[in-house]
Design a protein around this nucleic acid. Structure first.
Length: 510
RNA sequence: GUCCCCAUCGUCUAGCCAGGUCUAGGACAUCACCCUUUCAAGGUGAAGACACGGGUUCGAAUCCCGUUGGGGGCACCA
């Protein structure tokens, strides 16, 4: 055998007469990450487009790296994004079990087949020897793989190792020469020389399979038709194909998705110290991003719905998605654009729906909010926030017992402390009279007063805003005053006047 | 080191596979102006890219080769 290859297909036209069955196969060794979520999304989109089956398979064959809670995080992250699965944990299905740790017997059975047919062999090398070989080969400029020391052991030699009590690993016997190539739906033909490839481990000494082995066996047994995964897996396709060949199985169609880069466009997206970059789905969730915005944003990473439409619905994406339209080049994670997009989704939300989200979000953050308050505050901030989390900065003064305006900021344009204090006193008088205390009435009363005082609207309103909210930037004034309430507004106006008076007195003493 | 993958505005991308309609389109971000009680939102406009070098061709962002740059793999991890 010198040439093995997946059935050649034209780029752009994956053909298969099989039912589309696609899997997302995370390893529960960490929280759901944006890269994995995007992979899951593309798989999901393709399945929904083709009306196939979406399978969630848990690749928990590395006992050492299992993280408690990771599986739960992955499942809830997928559900939050709206990426439900048809088969897998909690969903069942006819091809289970769906966790690889529960399929050990299956792998055992299949390794025996490879052993019998001569495609696998037992290796007794210690990890120390393996490490030494690696370094020696690398020093010689060779590719640093296993040197196949145990590939042709005699029965006697094997017996001797067994007698020593060494538990072997099982390795794949790769062809020693020739080429192997396969067709990647996104990239076209990719080929490797067997010269550069090594005899990978299939079954570890603890009895668990490696990713490579479990992946091939399960994909076949679960009748997976298309494999869509990150492009870091490209180089492991050759041994996989050798296994398909060894078993006499038909390989699935491959599509290797481009990876996601750091926002600078250089380097892998990672949580570098101090970068503050969010990389886990749960972080986006707690920061107040909407799942539909994240869905939309991820869908655009490597795929374009169209040349001039950035925002599109889930249904539109499903309708138009095709793996062949995925670009092979990696894309940077543009946080700026995500923020903008999340803002678009927030603005598009019916006010009462946003209010509902916000109430839940704020309570989750420990705010004791009344749904009625949220309903009334939403019109003031809806077009000002890009995430739910930003709402807090816009409305925290509503919850404060008192605010602390900076006396230096209080005066309006071209006004001194005294004038400002007088203006605030005038505002106090007007508002104290006002009944009902409602925004339209506040608006006209205050505007009339500004005219009386010979002040421009901005000059008059800014001190009031700062006095009541403690901020130079706050939601629109009149609605804010109404919602803060007459009593509190008057208290804060009075406090600000006192503050100004104190400041002027201090200045005179100096 | 070695193998593999990738290459259009700062970023996401359209165009590329089926070369001419591309003086390369859209979006985010940036800047200016308009609107305006602050901030937003909205509107208008500006600036901004085919990595480089060779081919092929009447014609190349589009096809081929090379260079450079970037990324990934090279574990008894996935």
């Amino acid at each position: 055998m010198t040439k093995v290859s997946a059935e050649p297909r034209r780029r752009g036209h994956p053909e298969s007469n099989r039912r589309v069955r696609v899997r997302f196969a995370p390893s529960p060794t960490g929280w759901l990450h944006v890269g994995n979520a995007r992979t899951a999304l593309f798989n999901w989109l393709y399945v929904r487009h083709t009306d196939g089956d979406f399978i969630l398979r848990i690749e928990d064959t590395d006992q050492k790296r299992l993280v408690p809670g990771a599986l739960g995080d992955i499942k809830s992250g997928l559900r939050w994004l709206g990426l439900g699965w048809d088969e897998g944990p909690d969903a069942g299905g006819d091809y289970g079990p769906y966790a690889q740790s529960e399929r050990l017997g299956i792998y055992q059975e299949h390794i025996e087949k490879l052993l019998d047919s001569g495609y696998a062999y037992k290796c007794y090398c210690s990890s120390e020897r393996l490490e030494r070989v690696r370094q020696e080969k690398q020093a010689r400029g060779e590719s640093p793989g296993y040197d196949r020391q145990c590939r042709n052991l005699s029965a006697e030699e094997r017996a001797a190792f067994e007698a020593e009590g060494i538990t072997p690993v099982f390795r794949l016997k790769m062809p020693l020469e020739g080429q192997i190539s396969f067709e990647d739906v996104i990239r076209g033909e990719i080929s490797f020389d067997f010269d550069d490839l090594e005899d990978i481990v299939l079954l570890k000494s603890d009895g668990y399979p490696t990713y490579h082995f479990a992946n091939v066996v399960d994909d076949h047994l679960m009748e997976i038709s298309h494999i869509m995964r990150g492009d870091e897996w490209i180089s492991s396709v050759p041994p996989h194909l050798v296994m398909y060949e060894a078993f006499g199985w038909k390989p699935p169609i491959f599509a290797h998705l481009p990876m996601i880069l750091d926002p600078s466009g250089e380097g892998k997206l990672s949580k570098r110290k101090g970068s503050g970059q969010m990389t886990e789905i749960r972080e986006f969730r707690t920061a107040g991003y909407l799942p539909e915005a994240l869905f939309n944003f991820f869908a655009r990473l490597g795929w374009a719905y169209s040349g001039d439409q950035d925002v599109f619905s889930r249904e539109q994406a499903i309708e138009r998605f095709d793996i062949t339209d995925v670009r092979p080049s990696p894309s940077a994670f543009a946080y700026d654009k995500l923020n903008w997009m999340n803002g678009v989704y927030i603005r598009d939300l019916p006010a009462d729906v946003l209010a509902g989200h916000l109430t839940a979000f704020l309570r989750d953050k420990g705010f004791d909010v009344d749904p009625d308050f949220t309903r009334r505050v939403v019109p003031l901030i809806q077009q000002r926030i890009q995430t739910l989390g930003e709402a807090i900065d816009w409305i925290d003064f509503f919850f404060a017992d008192e605010v602390q305006p900076d006396p230096a900021e209080l005066p309006g344009k071209k006004m001194d402390e005294t004038q400002t204090a007088e203006a605030l006193a005038a505002a106090y008088d007007v508002l104290a009279e006002l009944e009902p205390f409602e925004q339209d009435a506040i608006n006209s009363a205050l505007r009339a007063k500004a005219e009386d005082l010979g002040l421009k609207a901005g000059q008059f309103f800014q001190p009031i805003r700062i006095a009541v909210t403690g901020k130079r930037v706050a939601p629109p004034l009149f609605g804010t005053l109404e919602l803060v309430g007459k009593e509190t507004v008057l208290e804060r106006l009075e406090a600000a006047q006192k503050l100004l008076l104190q400041t002027t007195m201090l200045e005179q003493e100096e």
